[in-house]
Amino acid sequence: MKLKLNHIIRGLALSCSFFVLCTQRLSAQDSTNAEAQITLTFGEQDSVKQAKAVVTKNHAPLKGVDVIFLVKKSFGSLPLGDAVTTDDNGEAVADFPTDIPGDHEGNVTVLAKVEENDQTGELLATKSTNWGVPTTVKDRFDQRTLWGTAENAPITLVVTVVSLVALVWGIIIYMLSQLVKINRLGKA
């Protein structure tokens, strides 16, 4: 019973906090600069991959806004160089480095971000692409090593120890059998 109750309480708390968070975010966008927008697109020029952000206000391009391009990572977002200022077309373009690690398929999440300012407020666009370098985790977890688990002991070590133990204990058991024999000889 306690278990269920606890889960219900947790669930409630979780959904409450989520709800609060959502409403906060919405209201922030609503109240300040709903007309300012940022869109993120990906393109390629001279075989250089580029991320392009377009900043508009009331559907008109906005010039002179600093846009930071970032790649989302576990413990923070990695900036792709310095901030890029939008041109007359409201465009800011950043070259996408060729060596950003992605997931195992090379997927990365790119962010285009405008820091809080009077003109636009805080703007953020997020988009995923497969431009990253696919990463595979080199896992030595199941290798037979000296630091491995008991099951992953190096074969040579296991064979050595087992054969030595078998040899010596074989002799010990033989000795015990001789004691039994001595005992039997005495009975006769």
Binding site: K73, F75, G76, T135, V137
Partner: peptide
């Protein structure tokens, strides 16, 4: 989330991250 020592350091001494991602962060800089 970053480990507590990383978060607590006022001078950004500790960077923590994932070697697979090749990215570390001290909370302020990534």
């Amino acid at each position: 989330e970053l480990p507590d020592c990383v978060q607590a350091c006022p001078n950004g001494v500790f960077y923590f991250g994932d070697e697979v991602e090749d990215v570390v962060s001290n909370g302020d800089e990534t």
